[in-house]
Write a protein that binds this DNA or RNA. Structure first.
Lengths: 165, 165
DNA sequence: CGTGAAACATTAGCGGC
DNA sequence: GCCGCTAATGTTTCACG
């Protein structure tokens, strides 16, 4: 997990792997004009240093019946902690973050600048599910003051590939 | 690419693969108590039907120097098309969508409900890069009227895994 | 960094439930 | 129809030059 030097060859390996994570080491080695063993050594180094966080299959949400994608802005209570914050207790933010981890329909959550505190990306089947999620989970949470939702009408672009210069 | 029936075994395969896309077929077969060949047949079927969109390596943005993540709301011009839309021409929306595809720092873009038209997720090195992107690309685009940006202070959760019930 | 050999994984064909 | 076996083929991985 230590920080690591990344040269031009490493970047080419990363560019290939973030487009197709199942290419064989041989195939990658060929594309960058290297033999398989040094190529594999570089890949292992990138994995162990944490530059490569992991390998995943990307699924098609619509084919799995997850037709509704929403971005939800959330504002939290900031004073008078939970149970009046006796001393050195969990804050509203701590509680909310822990809850977010347990909600599978929340596929992303960021603390944000601006007048709302958090931005959630929520992936669900339909409006009925979304409504239940907001009422029973989000608004039910003691730290949440206010939510504002926008729905995705269409996905124009969606990639996990980072711009590697 | 046809639509396909997905049974409980398929869902278990998908749940495993969206967490770790590099497991061998044998390993997956073991975990679901199936022998390798029917397991592989199911995986291939899921790939060919498009339920599995692909396999990718996930990279660590910070370790690659991409320290700034912004969500940018964009509003577009809606009347008086490009070159006054002589007849059957590309609309402002068409032009903007095409431009988005060519900007590598835009890793996601959705058409949204609400008073802004598009939501962009923008991943860049630092504020200087972001500033240049907004000035030289976004605001320079003839279809863009207005942009409103929020910056990510911290990522609380981030997964490509969909909630498979 | 490259070579080669052992260990391991994938895949197609065939028979059985 | 879907499962599981086997055998051939291809890939990964490691010690060594």
């Amino acid at each position: 997990m230590a920080n690591i030097e990344i040269d031009a060859i490493d970047r080419r390996i990363l560019a290939i792997l973030q487009e197709n994570g199942r290419l064989s080491n041989q195939e990658i080695a060929e594309r960058i004009n290297l033999s398989p063993s040094p190529c594999l050594r570089r890949i292992r180094r990138l994995e162990e240093s944490g530059v490569i966080r992991g390998y995943v299959a990307l699924l098609d949400a619509q084919r799995l019946g997850l037709d509704l994608l929403a971005y939800v802005n959330v504002r939290l209570e900031k004073r008078g902690g939970p149970a009046l914050s006796p001393r050195g207790e969990a804050t509203h933010a701590d509680l909310f973050r822990a809850a977010v981890q347990t909600w599978p329909e929340v596929v992303a959550c960021h603390a944000m600048t601006g007048d709302m505190d958090y931005l959630l990306r929520v992936q669900v089947e339909d409006m009925a599910h979304f409504s239940r999620f907001v009422q029973d989970q989000l608004l039910h949470h003691p730290s949440v003051i206010d939510v504002k939702t926008s729905f995705s009408l269409e996905t124009i672009k969606e990639t996990t590939a980072l711009p590697l210069l």
